[in-house]
Design a protein around this nucleic acid. Structure first.
Length: 258
DNA sequence: ATGGTAGAGTGTCTA
């Protein structure tokens, strides 16, 4: 089974590329983030013609997540993690959707961006991650994958120039500690062993021709529970998908399971 | 410190 995750930066504007990506790599399950669409706005016809079902969660024009699968979608759960008290800071229902596809529990995650370290959204991000970690600890004995845009660069090698991130989110010790917490609980970055190079980025800002100069960040991850990780046979970043007109600012990450 | 680009949808907000 082949699983992928991709921050598409608008599913509606990117649907041709999404369909081409699914065809090109024969993807069975695709977790997408930043769908920027309500469920009733999703373009399903091309996906349905290819044999895919879609489960989506999204309430506004900025976030939104979905799971696209041709091996079934069962036990869909969205709106996680529930965060009472954050309603005035952010839309909390559009950042995660979980489903069982081909016997594997997959969570498509759009971790809050955080904006700036002194912004309330940064506190919200850390709180969101803490709640996710609490829940994920209960799933680690099953084949579970936490996939998506984590908006965290876990090491200095995961950004093109750490000096440029001195006052930025994504690289702060608290965010990195939050990410490390999932590893401490037994989740594994199943892609890095197959793509160990320090410039294996998954995101390049649209500004300043950052893709053309490979000035990117590694912020999209597939973290697998031990039963999931044991089945991984390969992984890669589809860097070429970021090239050319009409690309998302993120590249897809692909994982193969035995 | 600012601005650069892209996508939502029309006056800005978000990343």
């Amino acid at each position: 089974m082949r699983i992928a995750t991709w921050n598409v930066n608008s599913l509606r504007s990117r649907i041709d590329r999404v369909e081409a990506f699914l065809d090109r790599h024969e993807v069975d399950v695709l977790a997408v983030q930043e769908t920027k669409a309500r469920e009733d706005q999703l373009p399903l016809m091309g996906l349905e013609a290819r044999g895919y079902d879609v489960a989506a969660a999204g309430v506004n024009q900025w976030n939104g997540v979905a799971i696209i699968s041709r091996v079934g979608i069962d036990d869909v759960e969205s709106g996680f993690p529930d965060q009472p008290g954050w309603g005035e800071v952010a839309e909390v229902e559009s950042r995660a959707i979980g489903a069982t596809c081909g016997g594997v529990r997959i969570w498509s995650l759009y971790v809050p961006n955080g904006r700036k370290p002194d912004d309330p959204h940064y506190v919200y991000k850390l709180d969101w991650l803490a709640r996710l970690r609490d829940a994920a600890a209960g799933w680690r004995d099953q084949p579970t994958a936490l996939v998506g845009d984590w908006n965290i660069a876990p090491t200095d090698d995961d950004v093109f120039d750490i000096a440029q991130f001195a006052k930025s989110t994504h690289v702060t010790p608290s965010e990195r500690a939050a990410f490390q917490g999932f590893l401490d609980d037994g989740y594994v970055d199943v892609v890095r062993p197959h793509a160990p190079e320090p410039d294996t980025y998954t995101y390049w800002d649209y500004y300043r021709q950052r893709y053309e100069r490979n000035r990117g960040m590694r912020i999209d991850f597939v973290l697998g529970s031990a039963p999931f990780a044991a089945r991984v046979t390969g992984a890669f970043v589809d860097r070429e998908e970021r090239a050319g007109q009409g690309a998302s600012d993120h590249a897809p990450v692909v994982v193969d399971l035995a």
